[in-house]
Structure formats: structure tokens, C-alpha cells
Amino acid sequence: MTAMSPGRRSLRRIRRRTGNSLLFVAIVAISVIAAFPLVWMLLSSLKTPAESMQTPPVWIPSTPSLTAYREVADVIDAARSFWNSAVIATVTTAGILVTSLMAGYAFAKYRFRGRDLLFAVLISTMFLPPIVVLIPLFRMVTYMGLDGHLFGVIVPYLANAFGIFLMRQFIAGVPDDLIDAARVDGASELRIVFSVVAPAVIPAIAALALFAFVYHWNTYLWPLTVLQGNTEDYPIVLSLGRLLSYNRGAMNTGLVMAGATLAVLPPLVLFVFLQRFFVDSIVSTGVKG
């Protein structure tokens, strides 16, 4: 290859620079399109009812007001719904953490007959859409007397395959010496799980907690089926559905958007502040398997 003349080199630099700015434009454009629905939601929640009904649509509310939020709080008892969502998401997450840590530890560190088969069978449930078991599960929960009750929403989901998988992946990397040392000190196996292994896999615990919390904050099908119109126990996602039927048509747009904004906030805030944990756990489990 001949040495490049100064002219060709600067041509290359220009080409790379235009390439970079093209990339930058693409990134900005995609970001704008991706963010647009949520921005529109926020803007619409601040409009007056008259503005929401205008054709062509008003983009920026002229006099932003929080009236819609006040109305939402009354119509669906938003505080109660938030509390229900928090209870469902927190208790379910706590259960998943405990069961996943224990099972993940056993699958990573114990040797027992049928271990790999049992693990494979459990993991296969990760690929099962909930609708496949919905009908008998609903009946079973009714047998247990838990239909129409928050416990009925929570109990079937206290363990899941993804949690076990994630924990096994991470606990496999905890040195055996650490565990053996604790055993020599006379620690029970349960104590080892929660005070030796758990502190060593904090990032995985954080990731699992966030995923579980967001998933069970957002989930709709199962609570809708179990709670059977017991609106007192409705989580925010179900109350949001009621909001739509409360006043059909364009009139309720501001109301619905304010409700949606409220429901979106907790998972979104959690994600934005803790996104490192989400992304790292996907990177380390998603494709290596």
C-alpha cells in the first residue's frame, strides 16, 4: 500500500466525521421516536379537558394543570391502588428472592441424583405462557379460598424459574472455600445461604429484586382473573383499566393519561436509577446459557 497523501488522509477524516454525525442524527431520531409516546402521555395529563378534545390535537398544554391528577385520586382511590401494587410487588419479590437463593445455591453447589434433570424441568417453565395454566390455576386458588384476595394474587408466584437460573449462574462463581470455611465454623446450610452466599452475590440479588418488582407491579392478567371485581384490592394497573370505562370517549383522555403517568412512574424511576443492574444481569445470563 502506498503512503497516503495529506489530501487523502483529510478526506478520510471528513468522511469519518460525516459518518459519525450521521450516526448521531440517527441516534437522536430514534430516541425521539422511542420517547414520544411517554412524552405525549405526560403532556396530555397536563391538558385541560377542552384541549384534549381539540382537532387538530394540541401538542403543548397552554396552561398546564394538575386537575386530572386530583380527579384520578378520587375516581379510583389511587392511594389504595398504589398500596395494593406495592404489597403485591414487594411480598412476591421477597418470596422469589428467598426461594431462588436457596434453590440456586443447591443447584450450584450440591451434587445430588437427578439434579440436572430437575433443573432442566424447572427451567422449562420459563417458556410457559401464563394463559396455558390460567383456568385450572384460578379454580385451585378458589379451592384455597384465596380468590378475590391479595394473597391469591401473590401465593402462586413466590418462586420462579428465572430467579433460580439467575442465582445458580452467580452462586456458581462463589468460591467453595468460603462455604467450606463457614461449614467448619459450624454454620447451618440455611445460615450459609443467607449470611455467606447472599452477601457475595449482591448485584444478582439487586437485579432479580428489580426484575421481579417491576414484573409484578406491571402484571395484569392474573390479578384481573383472581380479584374478580373486588376493586378494593385492585393494584394500580387494574384501576387504570377501570378508569377507561369510567367515562368513555375523548372526555377522559386527561384522566387516563394522568393515571397512566402515575402507574408508569415507580418502575421507570427504579429502572433509570438502577439500570446498571438490569443490563448487567441480562448480559451475564441472557446469552451465555
Binding site: 409516546p37 411517554l38 405525549w40 402521555m41 417491576v214 407491579w217 406491571n218 395484569y220 394497573v237 387504570l240 383499566g241 377507561l244 387516563v256 393519561m257 393515571g259 397512566a260 402507574a263 408508569v264 418502575p267 421507570l268 427504579l270 429502572f271
Partner: peptide, 10 residues
């Protein structure tokens, strides 16, 4: 991360 119900409404 956003609940599907909110996505559907928006």
C-alpha cells in the same frame, strides 16, 4: 419497564 396497560392506553 412500563406496564403494558399504560402502553395500551397511551
Amino acid at each position: 419497564m412500563v406496564p403494558m396497560i399504560a402502553v395500551a392506553l397511551v
